[in-house]
Design a protein around this nucleic acid. Structure first.
Lengths: 113, 113
DNA sequence: CCGTATCCTCCCAGATACTG
DNA sequence: CAGTATCTGGGAGGATACGG
């Protein structure tokens, strides 16, 4: 158990990490991109409840933090692929842990309130 | 690598878990309580930026999900201790992963935008 | 197909004051 | 010490329409 005596005065690392992958969608997006490189509309299909606007916004924010990479292919019709970056892949253990816990404890449950 | 073919139609487990430990404070609170049972004001000291009102609110929500336990001792002055529950302890791997990543990648960084 | 541009709503979270 | 009670604003997130 790696329990350091980190004093946690100005926000603890857990809080900091949640600042980045928290929010309603970022964790799920990262999870999908860790599995495989995915196109924009493919992501929409995987997450039917997100709006186009929100998906774009979240992707831009993740890209700004260098957690994911965007590749646009100059084709007609346009094709844009999103993939996890080297840096983003360091989040795999965390995302996997969240996913695993959710699967075990929350599947088919209603988790509101 | 435990990659199931979970289709993730109605929100994926990552999203579900973040629904529970996400938000600005819950992860940090759980982290502290996993380390040790802690009194109310002790938590405030560990997280100087949280307001009394928010701390109470977050604690109540975690308690409602049976992730933590509240014990009030009928003393003067009053003493209330919060501890992680058996169920809450199942979150340890996830919280540890978040903490570890934050330590490695975010310490001393400004992580706004 | 892959986005922007607006507009809007709700509620999260902070500030502050008070209490058993 | 360990909480409520109000008031308030700002921003996350949604709906909808349009564009290359």
């Amino acid at each position: 158990m790696a329990h350091t005596d980190y004093h946690c005065n100005r926000g603890c690392p857990v809080e900091a990490t949640l600042e980045i992958i928290g929010g309603k969608w970022k964790g799920a997006i990262l999870y999908h991109l860790i599995q495989k490189t995915t196109r924009f509309n493919e992501l929409r299909r995987l997450m039917p409840d997100i709006t186009q606007r929100m998906l774009t916004k979240q992707l831009r924010e993740l890209e700004a933090r260098n957690l994911i990479e965007r590749t646009a292919y100059p084709e007609v019709p346009p094709r844009v692929e999103y993939s996890i970056s080297e840096y983003g892949r360091t989040l795999t253990p965390a995302i996997e842990a969240l996913h695993s816990w959710g699967l075990t404890h929350l599947e088919k449950n209603n988790f509101n309130q």
